[in-house]
């Protein structure tokens, strides 16, 4: 469930150079063209969609590095 939502948000906010559908869950999003500016938009959209707030400790490249790591982070935040 989360995966599909995350993918949808990536399509609208990730500004990736490769189609989201072609990415594996552990594909490196930065290598797929995710920039720091796009990361901001992605994070804001994720916070709104899932009604969570990323703490400083999770605000790192690693958190946004793949679909899998984003889903893990959201699940952790939702407890």
């Amino acid at each position: 469930m989360s995966i599909e939502k995350v993918k949808r948000i990536l399509v609208s906010h990730g500004r990736l150079s490769s189609p989201v559908d072609e990415l594996e869950e552990d594909s490196d999003l930065y290598n797929a063209g995710l920039t720091s500016l796009a990361t901001v938009g992605l994070m804001l959209a994720l916070e709104e969609e899932f009604d969570v707030e990323f703490p400083d400790s999770m605000l790192s490249r690693k958190t946004f590095a793949s679909i899998e790591s984003i889903v893990d982070a959201i699940e952790e935040l939702n407890g």
Binding site: S36, V40, D56, L59
Partner: peptide, 13 residues
């Protein structure tokens, strides 16, 4: 400019 982008996300605990 890069910092100002990151600062939109980053917050001090």
């Amino acid at each position: 400019q890069h910092n100002s982008t990151l600062l939109i996300m980053h917050k001090e605990e």
